[in-house]
Design a protein around this nucleic acid. Structure first.
Length: 262
DNA sequence: ATGGTGGAGGATCCA
């Protein structure tokens, strides 16, 4: 049966609870993974989502920053959370569906402005976070798993609006792309979005600082859906809900969808 | 090299 999942960096789940509700109403994914909730778990407006049939949630939160949540129409079991690089941040949570599929929801550190760990602690933390993700998946050998989230890296040339111009911009530097590739390899993860949409420019994020985001289209594909081979080998399809970037008071990210034949 | 916008929380920190 088809199973539809979406991932969305919401940039404050409390400020944009109405946008989340709109997405759930109009698109009705089975599961919605949110990042940057910027809220303690007990202040997430769960009633709004429960009223729309999303009666299950697994989340980790903190005041003001970070925060990840998995909303679901289907029962979920909390499958834990990791604190890679010991940052003390709510950047990961996992949940298990009754069919045994595990969902990992990640918000990888953005990494600051300068792509040099000697002068920018945040860049070093981002690389360390990815290295610990890699080591963890090397030990776990994930199966029947889906990994989604704002990974804050656009790995391919056609994942950014201008490859050459962004080579020294955090999110597209070769060292970040290498680190992300090592995570992918360690878990034998398949990039579902790019399996389904292999050709052409594809973005999920457009900066607030760029007016005319739609016309200028200076985007990056920072939001990802990966799956292990047992899931990826069955049928699947993907899309980016770009219009959501143009909704009133939008997040700077658009939701990424994947539908699997589970 | 710089600044551009937006969220949290009430000064800056973060993206």
């Amino acid at each position: 049966m088809p199973f539809t999942l979406a991932t969305w960096n919401i940039n404050s789940v409390r400020l944009r609870a109405d946008l989340v509700a709109r997405l759930l109403l109009e698109e009705a994914p089975d599961v919605l993974c949110l990042q940057e909730c910027k809220s303690p778990v007990d202040k997430i407006p769960l009633e709004t989502f429960v009223a729309l049939g999303y009666t299950h949630m697994v989340a980790r939160g903190q005041k003001g920053y970070n925060g990840v949540a998995i909303l679901s129409k289907l029962p979920l079991e909390d499958a834990g959370a990791e604190d890679f690089a010991a940052l003390g941040h709510a950047r990961h949570v996992a949940a298990r569906l009754e069919n045994g599929v595990t969902i990992h929801n990640f918000y990888v550190p953005a990494g600051g402005d300068k792509p040099d760990r000697d002068i920018n602690v945040k860049f070093g933390q981002k690389l360390d976070y990815l290295t610990e993700m890699r080591d963890w998946f090397r030990n776990e050998a994930p199966q029947k798993s889906i990994l989604v989230g704002d990974l804050n890296i656009a790995p391919r040339e056609d994942d950014v609006w201008n490859h050459k111009q962004l080579l020294r911009i955090v999110s597209h530097t070769p060292i970040e792309v290498d680190h992300l590739g090592a995570v992918q390899e360690a878990g034998a993860w398949v990039d579902i979005t790019r399996k389904d949409i292999p050709q052409g420019q594809l973005y999920s994020w457009w900066s607030y600082r760029s007016p005319e985001w739609d016309a200028a289209d200076k985007g990056r594909r920072l939001d990802h859906v990966w799956a292990t081979a047992d899931i990826a080998n069955a049928g699947h399809s993907s899309r980016v809900l770009r219009p959501a970037r143009g909704w009133e008071k939008p997040s700077d990210h658009a939701p990424v969808f994947a539908t699997f034949d589970l």
